[in-house]
Design a protein around this nucleic acid. Structure first.
Lengths: 209, 209
DNA sequence: TTTACTTTTAACAAGATTGTTAAAACACTA
DNA sequence: TAGTGTTTTAACAATCTTGTTAAAAGTAAA
């Protein structure tokens, strides 16, 4: 077997498939477009990956493999304060999201919710580390106790994910170019961190109507 | 022309098309599935709407027509305080999003960005009412001046939209049922309102690192 | 060079999908 | 009821899409 050649061909296919699946989605993706982009004959896609479904699963799993460990890297350093943890996490999370489309995962999960339950089992345990961590902080009196840790989780993820997923619409609504939007978002991680920290510190004037 | 019959048929088709396009997306939608769901012959779809593209545009435009005016209803009552405005807006916005999938619009805009520029022109002017309103509040000293109105816009929309768009993933991550997630989200509009109001009121200890 | 194996291609097959059309069914009025 | 126009259907046509296959091209070792 000519490993040299086959790896580079396989890699070229994966690069092309990633691009096409991420921009068009499974249903909009065409095997022809993938092979064109990879510069090879369409039959080779089947030679290497058998079917469109199998190829898609490979791409989907690789995207999960990049994404999920990020969510689990929460309480690595036990000495780090929760404020620093939050800042560091938000910064790395947003940086990651700039390079990796989360919309791809979400879109395909909506299309086929089975993908979530069948292919993320091994990551699921790490997911509620975050909630457990903030529950502990509450018990220790380090943060306000009148806020649900699940809400913190939801708020943090919404603030990090949506502005990047929705960049096209936001820049259009705000009447600025995508370049200007990028510049606007340069200081965004700091803002999110500070917003969350302020929210979690102040016990009072919160649930007041 | 039998108006009675044709309107109900057309309406049945639209209901079915809305359902199928929203859950499967344009590329995943099948004319056969739409006609099955509407309980009519597939050729009738073409009789009423000519083509799949035309039918989709109709559904897309109707979704825009429901969605965009909501964004423009900001400064209706000039006597209302900005805090109340915010609370009212967030409440109605989230209520609306529970019934109308925003993911549909976003997904199709990503697929074909042209949809945004070509079909939303008439709404675009209303979009930056929000930003202009908060710029004015800043000048009048009613809210802190060290925060970008565009960021407020982005934060508010992210907090309102994403938790509903991403409900499946969030409920999975948080290890709760969708029913429990709904219950969790019952108090969410209040939380978002208060978070934003607190953020906008307090001049200090904000941009501090 | 021959041989054995891997990689690549062109051509084909099967089925899915959109769109058309001619005729049937229907509804309403004279 | 006959006539006119509208609505609906079954059957068909054209194209697109995935997947298969047999043969060609390439590679490396004996």
């Amino acid at each position: 077997m000519n490993t040299e050649t086959s790896i580079s061909t396989e890699e070229a296919i994966l690069v092309a498939a990633r691009k096409v699946f991420e921009s068009k989605g499974f249903d909009g993706a065409r095997m022809q477009e993938i092979s064109d982009r990879a510069g090879i004959n369409r039959a080779l896609l089947h030679y290497y990956f058998r079917s469109k479904d199998k190829m898609f699963e490979r791409i989907f799993d690789e995207a999960l493999e990049r994404f999920m460990p990020l969510l689990s890297t929460w309480d690595q350093d036990p000495d780090e304060s929760w404020e620093l943890k939050l800042k560091r996490f938000i910064r790395t999370f947003i940086t990651f999201l700039k390079a990796n489309s989360m919309l791809f995962l979400l879109r395909e999960i909506i299309r086929k919710p089975d993908l979530l339950t069948s292919r993320t089992k091994k990551y699921r345990k790490g997911l509620n580390k975050f909630v457990l961590y903030f529950e502990r902080l509450k018990q220790e009196g380090q943060i306000r106790s009148d806020v649900d840790s699940k809400h913190i989780y939801i708020i943090m993820h919404s603030l990090c994910s949506f502005p990047l997923m929705n960049a096209i619409v936001f820049s259009y609504s705000l009447r600025i170019s995508t370049k200007e939007y990028d510049e606007l978002m340069a200081g965004y991680p700091e803002i999110v961190s500070n917003l969350l920290i302020q929210m979690l510190k102040h016990q009072n004037n919160w649930t007041s109507k």
